[in-house]
Amino acid sequence: MFLEIKDIVKSFHNEHVVKTLNFQLEAHQTLSILGKSGCGKTTMLKTIAGLVSPDSGSIILNGERINDKKPSERNIVYLYQEDLLFPHLNIFENIAFGLRLKKLSNTDITERVSQMIKSLELEGQAKKMPNQLSGGQRQRVSFGRAIITEPSLLLLDEPFGSLDAGTRQRMQVLFKKLTKEYQITSLFVTHDLKEAVLMGDKIGYMHKGQLKVYEGKKEFINDPNTGVQHEIAFWDGLKVNSD
C-alpha cells in the first residue's frame, strides 16, 4: 500500500477530533471523503501533512513512517479551500514557487511551468497578478502550483467550496484530467455528495471524527448514513409527483 494510516488519534482540549483513524490508499488513486463541517476532516488532513501532530498512531507513506518528518520534508501538499495565491508574485512565479524552493535551474523551471500553464488552460495569463484572475482561474493556479512539485500525496480540503456551480463542474473535469496526467495520489475532502462520488476512485464517509472507507461505490450508495438513499428518494419523489 502506498499510504497507510494506522490508529491516528487527535484531540484538542480533551475533545477527540479524530478518533482512531485507519485507512489505506493505493498509488495514483483518489480517495474522496464526504463529511459535514466540523467532522474532523481538516484536522485529519493537517495531521497527514504534518501541520498538526497526532496524539498517537502512525502515518506510513511508501513504506516509510513519516510521523517525525517536518511538513517541508514529507512531499505532501495540503491545499486549502482558499486558493492562497501569493499576492506579490505573478501567475508564472506562483506556479514556479515550489520549484524555486528546490532551486531548480531557470530553463528547467520555464519549461515545466509553461507546460503546466498549458495543462491548466491558462495560456497568456502568465504575467498577470493573482488579483486579475477569476475565482476558477485562481483555483487552477493553486492546483498547478501544487501538482508541479510532483507531490507524493495531494491533500485537498474542499477545494471547490467557494466556486459557483458551473465553474465547479469544469474544475472537477480538469482535476480528473490533471491527476491522470501527473499520476497524482490524493485525498479529496468535500461536503458535496455528488462531488464525492464523481471524484473518488474510492469513497469514504467521515462523521464525528471517524472515517469509514467503502469497498466500492455500491456500498457507499447503499449505506443510509451517507445520505445517498435520501437523495435518490427525493428525486424519485419528484418524478412520481410530476408523472
Binding site: G50, P71, I76, V77, Y80, E82, L84, L101
Partner: peptide, 29 residues
C-alpha cells in the same frame, strides 16, 4: 490566513528560512 500561507509554503517544501524570505517578508513589505 498568514498562518495558512506559511503552512502551505512548508508543504510545498519550503524551509523555515525560505518561508520568511520568499513569503512572509515580501508580503509584509
Amino acid at each position: 490566513k498568514m498562518k495558512s500561507y506559511a503552512d502551505l509554503t512548508a508543504t510545498l517544501g519550503g524551509s523555515r528560512l525560505q518561508t520568511y524570505t520568499k513569503v512572509l517578508l515580501p508580503m509584509a513589505k
